[in-house]
Amino acid sequence: MLEVKNITVKAGNKTLLDNASLKTEAGEVVAIVGANGAGKSTLLKAVCGDIKRTQGDVFINNKYLEDWDRCKLARVRAVLPQSSVLSFPFTVFEVALLGRNPHIRGRETKRDCDIAHEALCATEADHLTERFYPTLSGGEQQRTQLARVLAQIWEKPESSERLLLLDEPTSSLDLAHQHATLSLARKFANEGVGVLTVLHDLNLASQYADRVVMLKRGHLICEGSPRKVFNSETIREVFSIDSVVMEHPTLPCPLVIPAVVRNVNNNGNLQLAVGVVS
């Protein structure tokens, strides 16, 4: 349903993304991972048309991205930005309802309001409905934005498959909400939505993604199932750190444990620091 063919993005004479291709089928969760500045967000922005591609093509439902009618596209494709600044006093409910914008002719129906409310329930932000968006915490804001984006593609349209693009949807969420958010993405995928998401946490990608795309300095290094791409060699190549990859004790997916050996103190003692990958 989403097909990206050989896209290159240049800013001045700097190549941000070099000849990257990827596909996302309906019902599939694809995660883009990579170090800071590897071009993950650039790839996502190029896919949704926010930045101009130097070359290459993007197809959604076999139709060239630029040939889509803006409003029709908005009914089948939703994009969650990395961060969203909104300093005006919209309530959480009003923000979620904005997601119904492309579906509304004239004024919103009861159904639109119900969907906005259901979406807020799904992202566990329904207790915030009457709060003003600027007064929320970062995580609450992110869940509100997610609700808006989900409300946008809540119902399956007659003719077309739906696409959900997420740029670091878990960046300011606590552990429980990180998993809740990706479970939600997974649930949408199971209903036939194609999901393409930028993720930082390899273990979240491992648990929830069908396929993983690894980027390094604008190049697509490897692509495949988490089991295929997550191994010590590729992780060293992409993130320049050592890691141990083992079978997850309870889930049928690989578990990545970064084992960073660092010289931290002046006594010459080596310390083993185990932590989350960037």
């Binding site: 926010d50 914008n101 946008q152």
Partner: peptide, 11 residues
Amino acid sequence: LLGEAEAEHLG
């Protein structure tokens, strides 16, 4: 109000 790119994505 959400941002220009966000508005574009909303059609």
